[in-house]
Nucleic acid binder design. Sequence first.
DNA 1: TAAATCTGGATATTTGATGTCCAGGATTCG
DNA 2: CGAATCCTGGACATCAAATATCCAGATTTA
Lengths: 152, 152
Amino acid sequence: MVVVKMTEGVEWALHCCLDLAWAGDTPVPAARLAAHHGLPPAYLTKQLQALGRAGIVRSTPGPRGGYLLDRPPHTVTLMDVVAAVDGADPAFRCTEIRAGGPHTTRCAIDTAMARADLAWRRELAARTLADLDADVRRADPDAPAATRARLT
Amino acid sequence: MVVVKMTEGVEWALHCCLDLAWAGDTPVPAARLAAHHGLPPAYLTKQLQALGRAGIVRSTPGPRGGYLLDRPPHTVTLMDVVAAVDGADPAFRCTEIRAGGPHTTRCAIDTAMARADLAWRRELAARTLADLDADVRRADPDAPAATRARLT
DNA sequence: TAAATCTGGATATTTGATGTCCAGGATTCG
DNA sequence: CGAATCCTGGACATCAAATATCCAGATTTA
Ligand code: SF4
Ligand code: SF4
């Protein structure tokens, strides 16, 4: 009955999305993103490809190629990124302990968990990359420019 | 940065808590609870012990012994059970990708995730075993008595 | 054409959940 | 008292999924 899972890949993906937002329209190779965060390049690639399949990120091959953010930051919610990387699983799978239990039609435990899961998703869907960007700028106005310089 | 994890043990624990609530003041051995749900007895034991350490459940050894719910159902929230079984982990651990990132003092991703996590916990803390009991009775008024009969 | 870069699948490694086992200790009952 | 019942807690085995690596194409730039 795993209700909510969240892997490290989401953290990486979010960082990369912000990085790409700051990089603007200059493609950034996966290798450079990985190096920037000290992450295994071959694995980060997988997260980026997932973001690509979700239409959040776009890629161009060849020299001077790399990844670009493919949507305006204020249209990409954190939920979008989580769903892209960890999959938009059917909310939660139940172990079906139905042997002689209280089961008639509906299950109280089931719905209670679904409700909590929904609250979580709603919260993630309420924030976008643009919000994160604004938060970072408030704390350190130079960070975006510095990151951009290091990546392009 | 695993934010929310939820294991199957929680589902089992919730089922057992409801069962014990219905069993009233008659102790139910772990073996019978396990058989009732078709679960591995040796492993269910672990969840029950966790519930015991959290003060949700009480145990009496010896013949005619077993487990009892140790608090009125309306005082046991789903969050209590989740925390007892899966641990009240520090909400979420961050991988610290701090190498050259936007880090100054606070982290936007961090706080956004913490907020979502909080929403999830709040939802779980808002419902108690008594609520679940009421839901089940509404769907099938006979279920509690039937379960009690099978367990005692 | 050569270099850079992505794509996608196969596979290995690691971690944590799941499941098992056993050697105690407490309690009840005869 | 002695035997049966039941819990406690730790050590250990197993399994699934996340994490990580590798490589053989495909695509674009120069
Ligand atoms: S009562 Fe049934 S549906 Fe609900 S969590 Fe348990 S097995 Fe799943
Ligand atoms: S920005 Fe820093 S604090 Fe925030 S999730 Fe990334 S590594 Fe953790």
